Amino acid sequence: MSDKIYREEVHFTGRVQGVGFRYATLQVAKEFEVTGEVKNLPDGRVYLCAEGKESEVTAFRDELVDRMKPFIRETEIKTEARPSSYQSFSITH
């Protein structure tokens, strides 16, 4: 059994701060078996890191993008398989 898990690091650009993006992300995460974090970045972007089964992580991201589409101008995604870094999903600062 592999100790590596699917991980996505996503940077959202647009009007993604001050619109409840992090809270919405936390709420959507509760609907999926994912762990990770979401936080605002000083440059105005939002950073999302999500880990879990690939199908859960991609479905989570797709649902989040669908719900927050009016605020997102660009989405950059980096994927990898690595040991898990999170026990739950949270908003960080």
Rank of each mutant, 00 (worst) to 15 (best):
V65P: 03
S84H: 09
Q27Y: 03
V28W: 03
G20I: 09
T25R: 03
F60D: 02
A29E: 04
M68S: 07
S85E: 15
L48H: 00
T79V: 13
E56T: 09
R22T: 09
E54W: 01
S88E: 14
V28M: 07
G20R: 03
A81N: 15
E8R: 13
E80A: 13
A29S: 15
I91E: 13
D3W: 10
R45T: 15
G20Q: 02
D66L: 12
A24H: 07
S84C: 12
A29K: 02
A24Y: 04
A50S: 02
P83M: 13
V65H: 09
A50I: 01
F89Q: 08
Y47G: 02
T25H: 06
M1D: 10
S2P: 14
F60C: 00
R73D: 11
K39F: 03
F12T: 06
V46D: 06
H93K: 14
K30T: 01
S84I: 14
R22C: 07
S85A: 15
S85D: 11
Q87H: 14
S55A: 14
A29T: 00
Q27A: 01
T13V: 08
R61W: 03
A59C: 07
F60N: 01
T75E: 14
V28I: 15
S90V: 11
S90D: 13
Y86H: 15
S85C: 12
T35C: 02
